[in-house]
Design a binder for these strands. Sequence first.
DNA 1: TTCAATCATATTGTCAGACAATCTGTCAAT
DNA 2: ATTGACAGATTGTCTGACAATATGATTGAA
Lengths: 228, 228
Amino acid sequence: MSSKYALNRDNVTLSSRLVTSMRSAILAGDLKGGERLSERAMTEMFGVSRSLVREAIQVLAVEGLVTVVPHKGPTVTLLDQKAAADLYRVRGSLEGLACEEFTRHASEDQRQELFAIFDRLKDMLGREDADDLIEAKNDFYRCLLTGADNDVLEQMFTQLNNRIVQLRRFTLSASGRFPETLKEIGAIIDAIRDGDGASARLLAEAHVAAAAAVVIRRFAELEKTSEL
Amino acid sequence: MSSKYALNRDNVTLSSRLVTSMRSAILAGDLKGGERLSERAMTEMFGVSRSLVREAIQVLAVEGLVTVVPHKGPTVTLLDQKAAADLYRVRGSLEGLACEEFTRHASEDQRQELFAIFDRLKDMLGREDADDLIEAKNDFYRCLLTGADNDVLEQMFTQLNNRIVQLRRFTLSASGRFPETLKEIGAIIDAIRDGDGASARLLAEAHVAAAAAVVIRRFAELEKTSEL
DNA sequence: TTCAATCATATTGTCAGACAATCTGTCAAT
DNA sequence: ATTGACAGATTGTCTGACAATATGATTGAA
């Protein structure tokens, strides 16, 4: 019997906690894109041995957050415009799938929770606080993925989303789009309410594509001004 | 300039070669689902130190090929029916995306190559050889992904496909479906020929769903006979 | 001055060995 | 049959060592 009282076996080892911690540091921007992650610096920063640092770096490399060049050392992956476009394209597909599966599989409780989170988002219009917004969005996706009831999808989507977080610079500077964002998500929510998974999927893909377009444009502008 | 003459920097370290080798061993079935991967056994099997074995196992764990339980040790991930269903669902979505992107981005050469590979597949009808078929399918996907021109998609699809390879037992026993398979892929090819990415996508998803249905059914049968 | 070859230094790649923490199976006691 | 304690095996983590490679400085020559 695997009851809900079972103790959590994850993150019990130093190794796994280190991975979590390093990942957080990257996502929070404390380790910035392009920054070198020398083993020496990492052992000091996290207070663990070289072995663990090396293991963690390999793991984050598979996740795409870190780029390793043999004999030169790892760096925090730096995304170019093409990579950003590629990421968003796949993300749109997976987000669409998540919406469709949520429509099909979510329990009534899960549906109500999703609707409630959306209401929370709506209430933020006008007095947008960056951190609150990020938290609400995270809740939204967590709920969506839980209801979609597909572990593989959850894992891949999460990985993808982590990589996209590194583009936060651009997504924040594009936050003037918040009203449209709300409208688009609202349409998705309505489709889910109606049990229309196919529409929810298409709307979700379109939503991601629209968000991506803004980010990519912003990207192009900044590249033009600050590049060689 | 990153020319096509650039030397390959991957797989130069023992570490990366070990990962490749262990992954191959799993995909080839030399390390079977559920099998324990004790560090001791792995150091002997691959002739490297414990450090490298541990790193490789972590990497394969992120890829989903290996499952690690703290203080108990890693095993080759064993898929249950739900996991198989989840994998195929996501794979359908990504394969659909790949087809659509191929239609949109592939060069004329890449299109011709894809068509040629499909002809090779067609010629196998009747005298199907398992290894030849697997090779042709791999070529097909490699070509498809190259033409789709999306590194993120390529990486995720490859990872997903690797995990699905562990279901080969079931897909092979379902090879009586080869004529239908050819018909379905043929329809996809036609859509790509017509430049109709949306159709190609839908057809690809349907194709994966049909293949998945067979595998899942086979799965249920075998589970019933051989289980507790 | 500029360019190329050389060399010193720092960093990464790999190994071996040690000890602590945890798991698993055994066996005696109740 | 269940409990508790114990022993052996395996994993988790650290440290130190040395080899392989990259980087930057230095030197020498055109």
